[in-house]
Design a binder for these strands. Sequence first.
RNA 1: GCGGACGUGGCGGAAUUGGCAGACGCGUUAGCCUUAGGAGCUAAUGGAGAAAUCCGUGGGGGUUCAACUCCCUCCGUCCGCACCA
Length: 812
Amino acid sequence: MTENSYPFKKIEPKWQKFWRKIGLFKMDPRSPKTKYYCLMMFPYPSSALHVGHGRNYIIGDVVARFMMMRGFNVLTPMGWDAFGLPAENAAIKDGIHPKTSSLRNITRMKKQLDAWGTGYDWSREVTSCLPDYYKWTQWIFLKLYEKGLAYKKKAAVNWCPSCQTILANEQVIEGRCWRCDNQVTEKVLEQWFFKITAYAQRLLDDLSKLKEWPQRVRTMQQNWIGRSEGVRIDFPLEGEDKALSCFTTRVDTIYGATYMVLAAEHPDIEKLIEGAPNRDDILAFVEKVRKQNIASRATAEIEKEGIFTGRYVINPVNNRQIPLWIANYVLMEYGTGAVMAVPAHDQRDFEFAKKYNLPIEVVIDNPNEALNAQTMRGAYVDEGVMVNSAQFDGLDNRQAMEKIADFMEKKKIGQRTVHYRLRDWLISRQRYWGAPIPIIYCEHCGQVPVNEKDLPVLLPEKVEFRPHGESPLKQARAFVNTTCPKCKAKARRETDTMDTFVDSSWYYLRYLSPKDKNRPFEREIVNKWLPVDQYIGGVEHAILHLLYSRFITKVFYDLGLVDFDEPFKRLFTQGMIIKSGAKMSKSKGNVVSPDELIAKYGADTVRLYTLFIGPPEKDAEWNDRGVEGAWRFLNRVWRLIKQPNVAEGKKNDWLKRKTHLTIKKVTEDIEREFHFNTAISAIMELVNEIYKAQDEGVDAVAREEALEATVILLSPFVPHMAEEMWQLLGKKNSIFELPWPSYDKEAIQAEEVLIVVQINGRVRAKITVPYDITEEDLKEQVLHNEKVTTWIKEKPVKKFLIVPRKLVSIVL
RNA sequence: GCGGACGUGGCGGAAUUGGCAGACGCGUUAGCCUUAGGAGCUAAUGGAGAAAUCCGUGGGGGUUCAACUCCCUCCGUCCGCACCA
């Protein structure tokens, strides 16, 4: 760094202060401009931000500044997803109260955000762990409770022994805890749920409205909801006036059902095996399978095992008696926990049938090669022709599926149904650092919701929060002991807290009236500002947070609280920043902190490099050398401003053209796909051209225009430097109050164009011709071109093709 | 197993509708400037070749005057879901 290099240390704080002073990011509710809500996923206040986080905020800041210049009334708020385990774990380890550490981290992170030059309307800051926020999280719980969408039930749940808490299905990844990566086990407990399954179909259908979401995220949500259409069939029990119902998506294979299987958790098992001679063996087997808990079932492909119950059921379409088994490969959570097994046409059933010598019967034949049940080595799961299926024989199995379903519905032995993979959202957490669930248990009245006027249910501050499998709040007597809101008798409070995803499912609404004491948000204001125009965050929230937010929004819509039923119109998921081949994390020790980088090169350099590193939706490897490149470029631009144009020279139409081409390219790159990397490279090209033009001598007007364009086009990326240079160019006011430039179409059209000449598909010559040359003249020129004639020689021209202003293709 | 994305120099990555492959940057090499350079400037930089030219976008095949781009097929990488009936 020499004395001539770009003095960011003086410049950056100056402009940060200036933006605060003029309230650049403070949204004016009375502005007549069109609204633009630019939202970034609010961060968890961990100890410090790294450059990976920065990518999110920098992208958002570029969008906000760009949209401002495009004439929108931009809202970019910021807040803190401040409840959650890490703060509590730190408290257990270091003895610092989660509130203290969270608020301290918030202060630190706010400084980091400022240092990056990212601007927010801080007057709208929300912090989810503060009572004026979680009061309304609790209020939302009450609304869902009123609507019957929040309920309590005993359930086998995912239990993380290390975090000592329950996890939602969404938080179990391959049988492991999403947070600490330990094996999850099963535990039966009374838990609170939100009935998200009631919205499964709408959450699925409305994905089609989200055209501006990444396809990947929509597919992930679709798979997660997991709708499947099929038929529910009742199989009467032999010797009893009862039936077992099962669900199948392959009703066309019903004639090939040679046995039925139950999940070990099936509630009817005890009754079914009453009096069976090997009852104890069966129970022992059931017990064994149950112990193969969620975790091991998910991680390891375990050997299929089963046991015969001694009972039989009747296949209702052909009255055939088939044996009833219990097996470890049937899941209670999906369908009815009972499956009609068709070994010939289902791989799992096939393997099981082979192992236990159960009959295999082909009912769909391969049209190309006849199947043989004795010799087949796997199930045939493709399309085919119906055989051994009574009146349905000969049909195409697709058609048969419909015909059989019709037949069963008519005969009342089965019914078309839809099943979802989505489970209800388990929101209870046996931890301290979360919003208390506003429920009171009274000896007389039972489960009673807290009155709205008594909210918030304050989280007590003095609590022993070392975990012991129960909510730490259970120890806080003053908290637990209360009176019943209905009968005033002695009562006790619910001691579980809510999943932090409840907090984050509605924060984007609170930004519109963060200080409102009377309601969570104001109807008219949120209707005006929502849906969010641009949401930016990590793809890791593709399912959890985004699905929950969509659900809560739909609930609000049904409650008449809002007029929109999707919260986020456009979603952008930025890629991770990788260092040494891995995601940055403190434990891996590969964290790149922005603090030293900003101190060494300034925020603009770090911003520029972060944006230039690659397409923002893709993961990118951080390279310290690349930062130097960004620094060099900024200095190159800086020198351009500081040094006068020495050799004032001739008119330069090329520079003017390049200027306008760059305006076009940068504008489209930002607007279209957020391709900041190519936008920046286009500006680099323009800067290179300015230098070249200066060397060759350029007129002051073209140079000035190019320079101004460079500064404006750079402004969303390197705002501090842009402001400073704008001032040096003798302009008043903030550059961000300026309208984004539009390009001059005429200037882009060149006087002369380069025409590529291909002969038999190879480039053989390049010639320059007037922009508006006629086709005849062009042909004339091409055929008389020296290079072209040497290639053509005496051969006849078979084809002569012209792509206007681009190329000529000749076939010999 | 199912679903999706992708495969381009030493590296990150460019390439509107098929139309000059490798923009821009990093790195490397040579030179200039400088007391010095981890600053700046100039030039070179996919491979082979003295050159004309030829070969090059994971492999093979196809469509086309023309293919990184479209079609078929194989291989590989990444991601999501996964005993879902």
